[in-house]
Computed example of a mutant assay.
Amino acid sequence: MRAIFITVLLLTSMGQESSAAESGVIVLYHHVATNTPSSTSISPEDFRAHLEYLRDNQFNVVRLDTLIETLKNQRQLPDRTISITFDDGYISIYEEAFPILQSFGFPFALFVSTDPLNRNQTNYMNWEQVREISEAGALIANHMVDHPYMLNRLNGENQQQWLERQRMEILEAEETIERETSQSHRYLAYPYGEVNPAIKSMLEELDFIGLAQNSGAVGFNSDFQALPRYPLASIYASLDTARSKFDSKAFNVKLVRPASPEVSVRNPSVTLEFAPGNYNFSQIGCFANSEPIPLNWQDREAGLLELIPNQEYGGRRWRYICTAPDPGTSRYYWYSVQFINTGN
């Protein structure tokens, strides 16, 4: 008989329920293998170590829809609540991760790009395997048809045509997933985590939740068209680096500027507005590529902080990360902003 995934509610101490919290954590995996690209891979041994840590340290592991709908409706979760997600639909998820998750009784979500499954592409699951995972209780959701760079435009394509093309692909993938699995949650994981305000507005009109790949915890005040997830692969796959992310909390913070993560410069300044919380403004530190970013408090009392990078960053995508210690614990508040330089 197939194992049925259940929500595992653990206790922080014998006979006592965990305290309530206004945030939770979503983690992201791709390959669970040792013979796949390191940038998106975690070994089965490291993956098992992650789950052992969650079990042994009394985390509340819930399916993604439980975490999202609870926070979206401004209801508290048990402290240290976490959801596990996978993107793309690689075969190692079925062959390696799925049995390990079953052995722990942990639920998870799988975001699939439908075209590789339709074509029985090498290294991907097929629909029969996805249905088996679905029937065991996993959430199956949308990762577009062919995993596009959503911000890239075709030659001669205007804004309206580009946005309509994205809309049609989102809906096509959603229809395919519902036909194959009888699931339709209207959750979209952006390929490569790339999104801009136009796509977020369209997603809201379609009544979709969006999930990105910028690190940070999810809270009442998070952007539900671009929820953060921690990618745990490569150098971030080790338990030593992952445990601080599992334990993190959400800042109550708003991005004031820039209006879009799609930028033409490689060192954009950023203004953030931090609401008061159980953290000290003077202990907020911000980083990019593990290097500190110079900070300018425009109005400390109002929580207005400007980040003024003194170097340029390479690649198509990079992040600024801000953290602050949670007083009296070893945990951190965590927020990040991802930037995309598309060359459009």
Score class of each variant (00 low, 15 high):
residue 7 T to F: 04
residue 15 G to W: 09
residue 20 A to Q: 14
residue 23 S to F: 11
residue 27 V to Q: 07
residue 45 E to R: 09
residue 45 E to M: 11
residue 50 H to L: 08
residue 60 N to V: 02
residue 68 I to G: 07
residue 73 N to V: 03
residue 76 Q to N: 07
residue 87 D to T: 05
residue 89 G to E: 01
residue 89 G to K: 05
residue 101 L to M: 10
residue 106 F to E: 12
residue 108 F to S: 10
residue 118 N to I: 07
residue 126 N to L: 06
residue 127 W to A: 12
residue 127 W to H: 10
residue 129 Q to Y: 09
residue 130 V to S: 02
residue 134 S to A: 15
residue 138 A to P: 12
residue 141 A to K: 13
residue 151 L to C: 07
residue 154 L to H: 03
residue 159 Q to P: 00
residue 164 E to Y: 11
residue 165 R to P: 01
residue 169 E to I: 00
residue 180 E to D: 04
residue 181 T to G: 08
residue 181 T to K: 04
residue 183 Q to L: 05
residue 183 Q to D: 04
residue 189 A to D: 09
residue 191 P to L: 08
residue 193 G to T: 01
residue 202 M to H: 08
residue 211 L to N: 07
residue 218 V to Q: 05
residue 221 N to G: 02
residue 225 Q to A: 12
residue 234 S to N: 13
residue 255 L to V: 14
residue 263 V to L: 05
residue 263 V to H: 05
residue 272 L to T: 03
residue 277 G to P: 05
residue 280 N to P: 00
residue 283 Q to W: 04
residue 286 C to W: 00
residue 286 C to Q: 01
residue 292 P to E: 09
residue 293 I to Q: 06
residue 298 Q to H: 08
residue 298 Q to S: 07
residue 300 R to Y: 06
residue 324 A to L: 08
residue 331 R to A: 14
residue 333 Y to M: 03
residue 337 V to D: 04
